[in-house]
Simulated assay, not measured.
Amino acid sequence: MYTDSHCHITCDRLYTRIDEIIENIQAKNITSCMIMCTSPEELERAKRIKEKYPFFKVAFGWFPSDAKEIKEKEIQYLIDQTPYLDCLGEIGLDYYWDTSFNDLQKELFIKQIQIANEHMLPISIHMRESTKDCMDILKQYAKTKIIFHCFSGSKETMMECLKMNSMISFAGPITFKNARQAPECIKACPIDRIITETDSPYLTPVPYRGKENEPMYVEYVAKKICEIKQLDESNACKQIEENFNSIFR
């Protein structure tokens, strides 16, 4: 059994072949899978998938780069959708492309954390080139369980993350040759705090790097974790699925 805690299968790039993707998920024995939605259209698609295949979980949140456009109407939309959500995300801060509206990103991030707190939803965190600000906000405001999505930080940052009510999610980049910090982080992270993801359609793991990613490739993320930690794959995957399911209790 494999777990993909973060996949964008309702984005336009993947949704055109959604039936094939779901068939591949079932064939690869992926028994836990969370669809991440970044727009109302993607969310409506995910709701229909979950209705047909209840093993899916659904997440939605306004992405940091949307902060300039998010007004009260969009915040109310998010609140209205909370009964349909298993997780609020991905949310956070992204200073990689543009730092001209960092304050707006912070405001949006805090608002969404507060909504998650009120509705007792876990949060999935996007933290790119913004570690200090992101961690400071989480420490001050977050009261629900946290997923650090596609973790790529240092061991020291990860240890700070583990002090919070969090899971560390690893994705395809841990299989890349240039993944310098990942092995150290994986060795140091207790297996009962690890989950796996693809972030598909991006970050396809080796040996399929360069191809479009999809959930069936999460197998190679799990195998790499087992290789680094010298764990039995079957037992480790059972534990990872248990970790993922524990987020929603």
Results as ranks from 00 to 15, higher is better:
Glu41Arg: 14
Glu41Cys: 04
Glu41Thr: 14
Glu41Ser: 12
Glu42Ala: 08
Leu43Lys: 08
Leu43Tyr: 12
Lys47Arg: 13
Ile49Pro: 03
Lys50Arg: 14
Lys50Leu: 09
Glu51Lys: 15
Lys52Ser: 09
Lys52His: 04
Lys52Thr: 09
Phe55Tyr: 14
Phe55Met: 13
Phe56Asn: 01
Phe56Cys: 01
Lys57Trp: 06
Lys57Phe: 08
Ala59Trp: 07
Ala59Tyr: 08
Phe60Trp: 12
Trp62Asp: 04
Trp62Asn: 11
Pro64Cys: 08
Pro64Thr: 11
Ser65Met: 14
Asp66Thr: 13
Ile70Tyr: 13
Glu72Val: 07
Glu74Pro: 04
Gln76Ile: 10
Gln76Tyr: 06
Tyr77Gly: 07
Tyr77Ala: 03
Gln81Thr: 11
Thr82Ser: 05
Pro83Gly: 09
Asp86Lys: 08
Cys87Glu: 14
Glu90Ala: 09
Glu90His: 11
Gly92Lys: 06
Leu93Arg: 09
Leu93Asn: 01
Asp94Gln: 08
Tyr95Gln: 02
Tyr96Lys: 11
Ser100Asn: 12
Phe101Pro: 00
Asp103Gln: 13
Asp103Ala: 08
Lys106Ala: 04
Glu107Arg: 14
Glu107Pro: 05
Phe109Gly: 02
Ile110Thr: 14
Ile110Val: 15
Ile110Tyr: 10
Lys111Cys: 09
Lys111Arg: 15
Lys111Phe: 02
Ile113Pro: 00
Gln114Leu: 15
Gln114Ser: 11
Gln114Phe: 00
Gln114Asn: 15
Ala116Tyr: 11
Ala116Trp: 12
Met120Val: 00
Pro122Leu: 12
Ile123Ala: 04
Ser124Gly: 11
Ile125Val: 15
His126Met: 10
Arg128Asn: 09
Ser130Lys: 00
Thr131Lys: 10
Lys132Trp: 01
Met135Arg: 04
Ile137Val: 14
Leu138Lys: 07
Ala142Ile: 03
Thr144Gly: 06
Ile146Arg: 04
Ile147Ala: 06
Phe148Pro: 01
Phe148Met: 11
His149Tyr: 10
His149Asn: 07
Cys150Asp: 02
Phe151Pro: 07
Gly153Met: 07
Ser154Ala: 02
Ser154Arg: 01
Ser154Phe: 01
Lys155Leu: 14
Lys155Ile: 12
Glu156Trp: 04
Thr157Met: 13
Thr157Ile: 14
Cys161Asp: 05
Leu162Pro: 05
Met164Gly: 02
Ser166Lys: 10
Ser166Arg: 11
Ser166Gln: 03
Met167Leu: 15
Met167Trp: 00
Ile168Lys: 10
Ile168Gly: 01
Ser169Ala: 12
Ser169Trp: 06
Gly172Pro: 03
Pro173Gln: 10
